Simulated assay, not measured.
Amino acid sequence: MGDPRFFAEPQPVRASDLAELTGSELHGDGSRELNGIGPLERAGRSDLSFLDNKAYAGDFRTTRAGACFVSPDLAGEAPDGLTLLVSREPYRAFAVAAARLFPAAMRPEPIFEGVGVAPGATVHPRARLEAGVIVDFGAVIGDGAEIGSGTIIGANSVIGADVRIGRDCAVGANATVVHALIGNRVILHSGVRIGQDGFGFAMGPRGHLKIPQIGRVVVQDDVEIGAGSCLDRGGTRDTVVGEGTKIDNLVQIAHNVVIGRHCVIVSQAGISGSTTLGDFVVVAGQAGLVGHIEIGAGTQIGAQSGVMNNVPAGQRLAGSPAQPVRDHMREVAFVRKMVRDARARGPRSGNSGEEQ
């Protein structure tokens, strides 16, 4: 149900083909053709939808969608006539199918409709671009930069000298990438800033002396970085983002930070210098991590948490200063009880002395 002005209506795909693509079990009419996606309450007969949360079971029972991915335990609540694609991971299967229908929505697309270098773009004579690279209007590619085939460099973006960008990447409009090595299939959304100075100063009573930042940013394969996020280059070491990690919009990653594989960093989070995150760490929105600490693999850090110390693997933290979620919730409950009790007692009496 996308706007056709922005995302062209795809060619219809049969439900049976999507079942095969996703490894789902087909129940119902496999010949049904689908050419759109939509939520359960709005989807029409040619739309594909999904259900993976019992809270939306009511919408599922009345949906008019043509086909729906659903888990085995909820499949029995389907309305008559709905083609089911039964999967133990319905949302993941839906993601695969939706990407098949709308591939243009998967990464930033160029304004330039050709292949190669658009008019008004500047590519240094010593830059090396493999076949199939698109350099959009106004983009600048620096001396010695290397860009792999299938990569898109968005309008007015700047790729600095000697930067390496792998194959099948997408760099959105107005991004800057300097002092960096970028892997394959990396997506950098509009306005991303990679490789600028880290915030390094020798502080003192005579003023703050700037320290040269001579490291790099290394972004491994299949990383996605949201609009307006900043990754500072290292001071004397590299800033590293591990493969498969997803970084939301407006995230700050400081110098020398090392982020493991398949981490998730949500909007407005900030990670201070020289902090290390293990694999599969989740940092929720507006959380802040101080510098020079280690966060163990699989740890989940709640929104607006302030993390000030090393964290073992597999923890769930909340609050500021951050602590285990259960401890945080007990403290919140205790404070609320104190407030209720104080209100029940009523206002305290004033000065007991009487005017003479």
Rank of each mutant, 00 (worst) to 15 (best):
A145D: 15
G142V: 02
V186L: 13
T275L: 07
P10N: 06
I253D: 02
A173F: 04
R14K: 14
Q300D: 05
H292S: 07
Q196W: 05
A303W: 00
F334G: 13
V186S: 11
A175Y: 08
H179R: 11
V290N: 02
A127G: 00
T63C: 11
R61G: 03
A269W: 08
P108Q: 00
D168Y: 00
V290E: 04
K246P: 13
A180D: 04
L18T: 14
P125K: 12
E25T: 15
I253A: 04
M308N: 11
N174C: 14
T239I: 01
A227E: 03
L82Q: 09
N256L: 00
R348N: 06
G200T: 04
I265E: 10
S274R: 03
S272K: 02
S320V: 02
T245C: 10
G38M: 05
S229Y: 08
V217F: 13
P212L: 00
Q213D: 06
H27Q: 15
K246H: 14
T176W: 09
E113I: 00
K246E: 12
R167E: 03
G148C: 08
I253Q: 05
P10S: 08
A67E: 10
A67G: 12
M338G: 10
S229W: 10
S31L: 06
E224R: 11
V192P: 04
P90W: 01
G198D: 13
P321T: 03
N184A: 06
R100T: 11
A344H: 15
I247Y: 00
I141H: 10
V217I: 07
I271D: 15
L181E: 14
V186Q: 09
G207W: 03
T236R: 00
P108R: 01
P312M: 09
I194A: 02
